[in-house]
Design a protein around this nucleic acid. Structure first.
Lengths: 203, 203
DNA sequence: GCCGAAATTCGGTTTTATCCTAAGGGATAT
DNA sequence: ATATCCCTTAGGATAAAACCGAATTTCGGC
């Protein structure tokens, strides 16, 4: 199968074209220790990239939504696991060795880098409610700044992203709900009622 | 002052050469919000890159030692602060727009990225002693895997890097000392006595 | 070698999030 | 429609780190 890429999402369009790959909920995209030679662009669905400690503690380093690219590594080995959160379509971009390839990859990598560095402040220095506030703000911005946001991931995933337990995540949601900052319509749909308050909480 | 770059540290040697800049202890290299157009390579000394919350809470995203390059940003604005920890010499690499420039920068940026992502696991999921163990292991590896390592930064800096208070850092050091895993010769010199134990603690 | 300021360590208390258990809701399959 | 399972919420006890105050050590300057 050959797909002709024409400034698709204006991202990484010089990479070797590849078929769209489908992943079921929870399905592994790659594992830590595997050799890597590709990047991955989410077409639809959502992905979690994470690392594990020997005893099972998990830290999700990032979620990736439609249009976003992941899979950057410093050497030829994956240092993380990647899984589809729900039914997900992914464009696999095999690495070629073109001259100006890096110049297209660098901006994408730098965006991931800055986001990672900013997330360190959250993990290292913010309390539970602040972390949830940051998370909801982030998700909203990445979904176009809407007041109504959809969370593709479970509370456990959110906890493992924010360095919290599921109970603490749940309690923080409850607090935000009770103070009228957000409303929940089902578990996965959040309405941000008081944007400014939420934004201030995130500092 | 002109310095001729000849594959110096085999890093970023195609960038526009620039004079070596000296910074006093605590001196600011750049600030959040400033425009950026350069990268920085540490020649000697050490640098902390950090972010602040409104109330002063600080998270150091990384330390940079001799030979390492920092200052990567996703756009034309600095999102972090950078300061010299002690007397530091820095090569300022003005950004040029050469064709194969990005291909030399990308590996450096990716190394910073992977390190940042790995640090998230520490901040999100590891306890105080584990964090110190990780930190000492890291510092040792970055100084060539020696048993005797030098810490250029204060306990406060270490705390702000590991998401701990200075008291907790101090107590963790005390525990490692009492269990015979490390020895301290002064505040800034650590001897790793039981490498394997320390390494296991870091998980 | 001594002195003084600053940094670090120490002790005790408080706070916060975790841990553990159990009850409640939602989605899916029957 | 209903039963079942899994995820989520809730409640209370526990533990870990933060907070506060004070003693001690370290290190640069004299």
């Amino acid at each position: 199968m050959t797909i002709h890429l024409t400034a698709f999402h204006q991202q990484a369009d010089r990479m070797a074209p590849a078929p769209l790959a489908f992943f079921a909920p929870g399905e592994e995209i790659y594992a830590q220790g595997e050799r890597c030679g590709s990047l991955y662009r989410v077409e639809f669905g959502a992905v979690r990239v994470y690392r594990l400690l020997a005893d099972g503690r998990r830290q999700i380093s990032a979620f990736y939504l439609a249009g976003e690219t992941f899979g950057f590594e410093a050497d030829d080995t994956h240092h993380f696991f990647a899984e589809a959160i729900n039914a997900t379509g992914i464009q696999v971009l095999r690495k070629a060795h073109g001259a100006n390839l890096a110049s297209e990859l660098l901006p994408l990598a730098l965006q991931v880098l800055v986001r990672a560095q900013e997330h360190m402040l959250v993990l290292g220095r913010q309390n539970a409610v602040e972390r949830i506030a940051v998370f909801l703000t982030e998700m909203s911005e990445r979904q176009g700044g809407l007041r109504l946001i959809e969370l593709p991931m479970s509370r456990t995933d959110i906890g493992d992203y924010l360095g919290l337990t599921i109970e603490t995540v749940s309690r923080a949601f409850t607090k935000l709900k009770q103070s009228g900052v957000i409303k929940l319509q089902g578990l996965r749909n959040v309405e941000i009622v008081k944007w400014q308050v939420l934004s201030d909480m995130a500092s």
